[in-house]
């Protein structure tokens, strides 16, 4: 599997670290326990299109949002995550 890094071009999956479901957002610090439970533990885990984060550790070290099909491994898009978004 090769991931099309927006900075480096197509690179082997072995250069990247998987960071999981990109649709999960971190709750506010004062959010209740249910919100944290949902963000930390609960996942949709779909078979099919999946939006996910990959960290290009063995390359430009950017965090990338990848659109990938979990049933076929086909990748349909990859974009840089803005620094603001990544820190959330």
């Amino acid at each position: 599997m090769r991931i099309p890094c927006p900075v480096c071009g197509p690179r082997s999956v072995s250069e990247f670290t998987y960071e999981g479901d990109a649709t999960v957002t971190r709750p506010a610090l004062d959010a209740d326990a249910d919100a944290w439970f949902a963000a930390v533990y609960q996942r949709a885990n779909p078979r099919g299109p999946h939006s996910e984060l990959w960290h290009h550790m063995g390359g430009c070290r950017s965090i990338i949002r990848v659109e990938r099909d979990t049933g076929t491994h086909a990748i349909t898009g990859a974009s840089l995550v803005s620094p603001h978004e990544a820190s959330e």
Partner: peptide, 19 residues
């Protein structure tokens, strides 16, 4: 491995599982 997909049919949209 199909737990999330099958349980979604029963109304469980999210579970503490990744496949």
């Amino acid at each position: 491995g199909s737990t999330s997909e099958v349980m979604r049919l029963a109304g469980f949209d999210r579970l503490p599982i990744e496949s």
